[in-house]
């Protein structure tokens, strides 16, 4: 249905909603956090394979780093949400 372009005398406040999961920061944050959890657990549970890493528990450290970065992205998206102007219903 085409929306007529009527010029209103008073500009109504634009309807907006948060981008939520569509916010790329949430997608990055969630994926990195999940990877962080998996690697940290692997680092704790599994054989650290010191022969490969040269004596460092690489999974554990990388997992913790990913957790920090991932959570930082989620926090950023929470604290400074993107507001998307609501589209007039004209899909399909």
């Amino acid at each position: 249905m085409p929306t007529p372009r009527t010029r209103k005398p008073v500009v109504a406040p634009e309807r907006r909603h948060k981008a939520g999961i569509l916010d790329i920061r949430n997608i990055i944050g969630l994926l990195l956090t999940t990877y962080g959890v998996i690697l940290t657990l692997t680092g704790i549970v599994a054989d650290p394979q010191h022969d490969k890493t040269g004596g460092v528990n690489a999974n554990l450290w990388a997992g913790l780093a990913l957790l920090v970065v991932g959570l930082a992205f989620v926090a950023w998206a929470r604290l400074r949400p993107v507001l998307v102007p609501e589209q007039p219903a004209e899909d399909d």
Binding site: I24, I27, I28, L31, L32, Y35, K52, T53, G54, V56, A58, W61, A62, L66, V69
Partner: peptide, 25 residues
Amino acid sequence: IYNEVLQFFVIVAALLPLTLIGLHR
């Protein structure tokens, strides 16, 4: 584009440990 941005972080998360462990070795 979304995937490219996501990919950037995954590729850094993948190659950075590789480089650091390699340097350590």
